[in-house]
Simulated assay, not measured.
Amino acid sequence: MKRYVSILLVCFLISGCAKQEIIDRIKIVQSVGFDVQGDIFKSSGTYASYQKKELLRLMNVEAQTFGGVWLPQNTKSDDQIVTGQIRTIVISEKFARKSIQPLAMSLLRDQVVSNNATIVISKQEVSTIMSEALKNPPFYLSDLIKQNMEKGNTPLTNAHSVLNQYYGEGQDVYLPVLDQDENGLIHLDGVGVFKEDKLRLLLTEKESLLLKLLKDKSKTMIGSYEFRRRENEPIYFKILYGKRNISHDQNDSVVISLKLHIQLRELPKTISSVSNSDLLDLKHDIEQHFTSEISDMLKKFQMNAVDPIGFGELYRSNHRNWNEQEYKNKTYPNIKFEVNSEIIISQSGVGVGAE
């Protein structure tokens, strides 16, 4: 009996020390964006407004320091601002090209922001993107990004992986890119790759998928792809899942083996989905296409001195006398890549190809 009484007393003591935060007396920031104009930091944040008719409201502020943007937000708020539920952090392309060091330092020091928060680059001003997001249901922005990472062509990333890439050795940061179409609708548009703390390279949507295939785990190695064969015939298929292996040997060469299971979705009339010879020819063409495209992308990384795949990290794990600068200046530019692609047509689809 005394044991149960002691447990109850401890529970009361713990609950008495907890800080109460009543939901309609705080402002829970769901997404926040950062931009720069000269030496001024600009911030736009969306938060739930439980006492108003609007589901989300937008607050725009300016400050001379990155962390100082929270001060004017507090002065404009009638309730305490809480950042523990931030799902999306948007930075402008201008901010990314200048330096993401203030953001990285803030994430490292601020233990309140979740490691699962997603960081993305916006081609427009952050306030424009955030204003457009207000027209949609709550969590629209975070759900859009999550859907494209889990089922689309965008590689997985979050605040935790960004910090690991930024402060770790032998790898570079990459972030998804947001854009708006002619109707103002927000969509994912490739990936931005950084050299140290500055945006260096913008990848297309197709290159974004190739990066995903070289980085994601097997279960999320999925996406959609289309290309034209030698005869300029369009091919469209879905990647169901895949496996890869990357080895960095002692001779400064890297071998990449990629095995993908695909579902054919649309074929030209010259190809029959029930003809073994047609499917074998198509399989060969897709394998050659992926091998060529991945090889070209890796050469582009070398030319721009960026390593989003993390070949340097793999090299470091196998070499005791690791020197990051020596690797970047001498080893990485001269690496020879061997890419081997294997395609397995798991599903040929229904009603596609030659009749």
Rank of each mutant, 00 (worst) to 15 (best):
S224A: 04
S49P: 01
S224H: 10
G152A: 05
I40T: 15
T291I: 04
S292G: 13
G170C: 01
S106A: 14
F290L: 13
E226P: 03
I89Q: 05
K42A: 04
M105Y: 00
M59H: 11
A104G: 00
V113D: 09
V69R: 12
L201F: 09
G45F: 01
L163T: 02
Y47L: 11
H284E: 15
E326C: 08
Q64D: 15
E231A: 10
L213W: 09
D197T: 06
G45V: 09
I345K: 15
E233L: 13
R230H: 08
R97K: 05
D110Q: 01
V177K: 04
F194H: 00
Q347I: 15
K151A: 07
G68W: 03
L202P: 01
D307Y: 11
E207P: 01
I89M: 05
F227H: 01
E205M: 06
K52H: 14
L213S: 15
K336T: 13
L163W: 05
N329H: 12
N148H: 10
S99H: 02
Q20P: 05
G351R: 07
H261V: 05
I23P: 14
R3G: 07
I22S: 03
N153V: 02
I246E: 00
P102N: 03
K151F: 10
I26K: 06
F66L: 11
N304G: 12
L55N: 06
N251L: 13
L156P: 01
L280F: 08
L240F: 04
K2D: 09
T331F: 04
N323T: 03
N245V: 06
D143W: 02
L134V: 03
G152H: 00
N164S: 13
R320H: 14
F311P: 08
V112H: 02
Y166D: 01
